[in-house]
Amino acid sequence: MYLIIVPIAFVAINAWTIICFWDDKQSAIAGRRRIPEASLLQLALLGGTPGAFLAGHLFRHKTRKEPFSTRLQVIAAVQLGLLIGFAIW
Rank of each mutant, 00 (worst) to 15 (best):
I5S: 07
Q79H: 01
P36H: 02
S39I: 04
L46W: 05
E66W: 02
S39R: 13
L41I: 11
G85R: 01
I29L: 06
A12M: 14
R60M: 12
F10W: 15
R32I: 06
L58E: 07
I8E: 04
G47F: 04
I13Y: 02
I19D: 13
W89D: 15
R60D: 15
L72A: 11
F21E: 13
Q26D: 12
R34L: 07
I75R: 06
A28W: 03
R60W: 12
L72V: 12
A44E: 05
I8V: 12
G51C: 07
A44P: 03
G85K: 04
G47T: 10
E66P: 00
I35M: 08
H61M: 13
K62H: 03
L83C: 13
Q42W: 12
E37A: 00
A87E: 01
Q79W: 00
L80G: 02
I19W: 15
M1D: 08
A76Y: 00
T63Y: 10
F53C: 02
W16D: 14
A87F: 05
S69D: 08
I84M: 04
G81H: 01
I19F: 14
F10T: 15
T70H: 11
R33A: 12
P36N: 03
V78G: 00
F21Y: 15
R33V: 14
P50M: 05
Q26I: 04
S69P: 07
L41A: 11
I8F: 09
G31F: 02
S69H: 11
P36T: 04
I88S: 11
G81F: 00
L82K: 02
I8H: 02
L41Q: 06
W89E: 09
F53K: 01
Q42N: 14
R33C: 09
K25P: 03
I19V: 14
L58H: 04
R32T: 10
G47P: 05
L54E: 06
V78Q: 00
L45A: 15
G81D: 01
L54H: 07
T70A: 14
S69C: 11
A38D: 06
A15V: 10
F59I: 04
I88H: 09
I4W: 07
R32K: 15
L82Q: 01
A87N: 03
K25R: 06
D23G: 02
R33W: 12
S27M: 14
R60L: 06
R71S: 10
R64Q: 12
T49Y: 08
V6D: 01
L58R: 06
I4K: 09
W22I: 07
G47K: 10
A77N: 08
L43H: 07
L40E: 03
Q26C: 07
L45N: 05
A52R: 01
L72Q: 09
A44N: 04
W22E: 13
L46H: 04
D23K: 12
A12E: 06
G56Y: 05
V74Y: 05
I5W: 05
N14W: 09
V11H: 14
N14R: 08
G85N: 10
I18Q: 03
A12P: 09
A76K: 02
T70D: 13
D23S: 10
S27N: 14
D24Q: 03
L41G: 04
Q42G: 08
A44F: 03
A44K: 00
G31W: 08
